Simulated scan of single mutants.
Amino acid sequence: MKRLQDKVAVITGAGNGIGAEAASLFAGEGAMVVVADIAGDAARGVCERIRARGDRALAVTVDVTEAESVKTLMDATVEAFGTIDVLYNNAGGSRPGDGTVVEVEMDVFWRTIKVDLLGTFLGCKFAIPWMRKAGGGAIVNMVSSVALMGTPGVDCYTAAKGGVAALTRSMAVTYAADGIRVNAIAPTTTLTQRIIEKLKSNPTAQRLSAKNLLGEPLPVDIAHAALFLASADARMTTGSIFPVDSGTLIY
């Protein structure tokens, strides 16, 4: 049997990059996938590609920083597919202008916190009640290797992802009795189109890339980690921060 057969999976930030790879992979493993992204056209494009091969998908436009938008996403999911079994809080990323606490502009800090930390918080807030009704589920959050080590020059992103890591552990304890597992992935620099562009000129991205012992992961490598954590293969795993870091954290 396919690993997510007949499960309902919501993936945010699924219009491109890691999220799009995860949507395709989850659908191929039998899931009914909700492709959620602030870029509606991108979400619809991913959805159409999944449907074209005979798998099940729904595209929803969402702003993960707005509570009502996230609630609407979860309500639309349940209306279309009846429940929520998996939530992959993939939306997020570093913001242009990130820097040190002394130098960074406050709007960059708050935007990063809203997209990465608040977005994850809201996804969980509105998905967990449906998972409870279903008798359990799996949540996969996105952290980053920068949250697990000292990385100069990205203090906003580090703070936001560190918050997601702490929230992941807290929710794992809180909702274990409901049969809800909560884990997170901590990728290193991953070769999405955005990162490929950053590697051309961003010193922080270049420093992190140089530490990758096995080279930079592809988006599909992160998607496979998310699939594992979402599936019954990880049924005894909760509260874990799962590095897909090409060895960056060992030296």
Rank of each mutant, 00 (worst) to 15 (best):
S240T: 14
P187V: 01
V173C: 13
R56D: 12
V146I: 09
V62N: 02
T72C: 10
A67Q: 08
A223Y: 02
I11L: 07
G54E: 14
G54K: 15
V154Y: 00
S94G: 08
T77N: 02
L249A: 13
C124T: 12
A27W: 03
S94R: 14
E68N: 07
G54M: 12
P243K: 07
G99W: 09
I50Y: 08
G153Y: 02
I241C: 13
F126M: 08
F126R: 07
V101E: 06
D233Q: 11
G93P: 08
D37I: 00
K211M: 11
S24Y: 00
A42S: 09
T100C: 09
A23G: 06
I222S: 04
G13V: 02
K2R: 12
E48H: 03
P129S: 04
N89M: 06
T237N: 10
Q206R: 05
R53D: 12
S145A: 15
S231V: 10
T188I: 09
A43E: 15
R51S: 11
K200C: 07
N16Y: 00
V143I: 12
D178T: 10
D155T: 02
A42Y: 03
T168I: 07
E21W: 02
M142A: 12
N90Q: 07
K71C: 08
T204D: 12
G239V: 12
S170W: 09
F109D: 03
G137P: 11
I185W: 06
H224F: 04
N90S: 13
I139T: 11
A39T: 12
K161L: 10
A230H: 05
V35Q: 01
P203N: 13
M142S: 13
R111A: 00
G150P: 04
G13H: 00
I84P: 03
Q206M: 12
L118M: 08
L191P: 01
G99Y: 11
H224Q: 15
I195Q: 15
E21F: 03
G153C: 05
L213G: 04
T12G: 03
F121K: 00
A57N: 11
P152N: 10
I180Y: 04
M149A: 07
D178W: 05
G136I: 12
V244F: 08
R49L: 06
F242Y: 07
A184G: 06
V140I: 13
K161D: 02
F26N: 10
I18S: 13
D178G: 06
A138V: 09
D178E: 07
I38E: 01
N183Y: 03
T237A: 08
V244C: 05
C124V: 07
